[in-house]
Nucleic acid binder design. Structure first.
Length: 463
RNA sequence: GGCUGAGUGGCAGAGUGGUUAUGCAGCGGCCUGCAAAGCCGUGUACAGCGGUUCGAUUCCGCUCUCAGCCUCCA
């Protein structure tokens, strides 16, 4: 069907992707814990895996894409308390905000978006199974713990060996645990905390179990791809494997994908460091598509350094691509062009979007050349360019509309005013009053509007 | 301390055992009333030191530097 290679964190190698069920892919991605706005790091996960899904579909797969929402955890409880708000109200607020950000980034909706709080029954029964199978125990404080020593494969994903990890140094020693790396499956509720009934009293699920429950419920015990940010590799994903495989007795996931971090000044962007930009903030200055391009301009496993310069470059790059698409009617080619083939080769190599994008630029260059010389060929190339852009979620807007759109939420001159100025300038031009014509052009330039003359016809775009 | 990963031209960022990444910026030219856009041309880049090789930025070893995980984090 294809020769898609994916880097599997489990084997630390690129592997030929082969779905469990021919033609179908089950994909689970760890989504947001909803207690705050999404930052650019979250945007990266969304865009990267959205691109993975789009590309898998481009290859002809039917994709079951599940991206969960964690809507109960300690931080949510704290925030709700601070805001004097019911926790479910708080989470709903940020779920809505998240959906807005996703729309801005042209991220498609997943097939399913399960909420942890809607899967409590499944979570409880999974924990019960783990207890029954002696993989979990109830501590003296009433919390239920997973026993890492009971699972022989523990550490396979992260490469951590229990013996080598210095417990007590970085990990707090907890009297209730048999092993310091044992982790909570069920947490007893304190007074006033949100709680659900369980055989172990009122409480809530621990951090990792909800993903095991939701993933296996939505996609089956064994599925194709599981993804998320690098930092989830350990302990979150390691624990998911331990829980799921111990409970079901089956292999959990074939391919593990982890995306790299967004950095600021060579440091990880993170909530705990406080050095993050929210998607919302960045959208005040840049178009969603510019952010999306920025994310895809480097390989998903590489670090991605955030800066205005980078976003500005993305802006220029998109301007070039959209400019190439102006004034050409795309016409579908009957054969797969060399460009598209090279694009697919790049994407087949572990979703190398950076390389794939470079092919798009080569195509744009050819398109620019052929526009005047051979319009029919140009139309085919325009379609090729769009064919490549589609799985990346780029270039989906009308070129003229894009180029004339305002970036961010800045106050801008209206289109009507611009057209009026252009009409004035045309008058000046016909009178060969170059001084006035240039003056008007300069004025518009100061408003961020660039004019392009083609004889007596003038097109405009915003910078 | 344990375990990962990375160091490429002015910047960003792919890739390769011997031949052009790509984008932005710069320089020269074409086009234009002048511009803009576009096109053409243009850069002794691959952290350091050894090794393997006819030949290494690309493979191996060591050194240096940086980042990440091991604690909530995408």
């Amino acid at each position: 069907m294809n020769s898609l290679q994916i880097f599997n964190t489990l084997s630390r190698k690129k592997e030929l992707f082969k779905p469990i069920k021919e033609g179908q892919v089950g994909l689970y991605v760890c989504g947001m814990t909803v207690y705050d706005f999404c930052h650019i790091g979250h945007a990266r996960v969304m865009v990267v895996f959205d691109t993975v899904v789009r590309y898998l579909k481009h290859l002809g797969y039917k994709v079951h894409y599940v991206r969960n929402i964690t809507d109960i955890d300690d931080k949510i409880i704290v925030r709700a308390l601070e805001a004097n708000e019911d926790f479910s109200q708080l989470t709903q607020r940020f779920i809505d905000e998240m959906h807005q950000d996703e729309a801005s980034l042209n991220v498609l909706k997943p097939s399913l978006e399960p909420l942890a709080t809607k899967f409590i029954d499944n979570i409880v029964s999974m924990i019960q199974t783990l207890i029954d199978k002696q993989h979990a125990y109830v501590g003296s404080n009433g919390d239920v713990y997973y026993s890492v020593e009971s699972f022989t494969g523990y550490g396979q994903l992260s490469g951590c060996k229990l013996d080598d990890m210095n417990a007590g140094e970085r990990v707090e020693v907890d009297e209730n645990k048999r092993n310091p790396f044992d982790f909570v499956l069920w947490k007893s509720a304190k007074v006033g905390e949100p709680a659900w009934l369980s055989p172990w009293g009122e409480g809530r699920p621990g951090w990792h179990i909800e993903c095991s429950a939701m993933a296996t419920c939505c996609l089956g015990n064994h599925f194709d791809i599981h993804g998320g940010g690098m930092d989830l590799q350990f302990p979150h994903h390691e624990n998911e494997i331990a829980q799921s495989e111990a409970a079901t007795g089956e292999k959990f996931v074939n391919t593990w994908m982890h995306n790299g971090f967004v950095r600021i000044d060579d440091e990880k962007m993170s909530k705990s460091l406080g050095n993050f930009f929210t998607v919302r903030e960045v959208l005040k200055q840049y178009r969603g598509e510019e952010i999306r391009f920025f994310v895809l301009s480097s390989h998903y496993r590489s670090p991605l350094n955030y800066s205005d310069e980078q976003l500005n470059e993305s802006r220029s790059a998109l301007e070039r691509l959209y400019t190439a698409l102006r004034n050409v009617a795309p016409v579908q080619n009957t054969v797969k062009s060399d460009f598209v083939q090279r694009f697919e080769a790049a994407m087949n190599d572990d979703f190398n979007s950076a390389k794939a994008i470079s092919v798009m630029f080569e195509c744009a260059n050819e398109l620019n050349k052929l526009k005047t010389r051979n319009p029919e060929q140009a139309s085919l190339l325009a379609h090729d360019l769009l064919t490549m852009a589609d799985p990346l979620g780029l270039l989906n807007q009308d070129p003229e509309a894009y180029l004339q759109s305002t970036a961010g939420s800045n106050e801008a001159m209206s289109s009507d005013d611009i057209e009026m100025k252009i009409a004035q300038r045309l008058q000046a031009k016909t009178e060969k009053n170059w001084g006035l014509a240039d003056q008007i052009r300069d004025e518009l330039k100061e408003q961020g509007v660039v004019l392009e003359d083609k004889g007596l016809e003038t097109t405009w775009r915003r910078q």
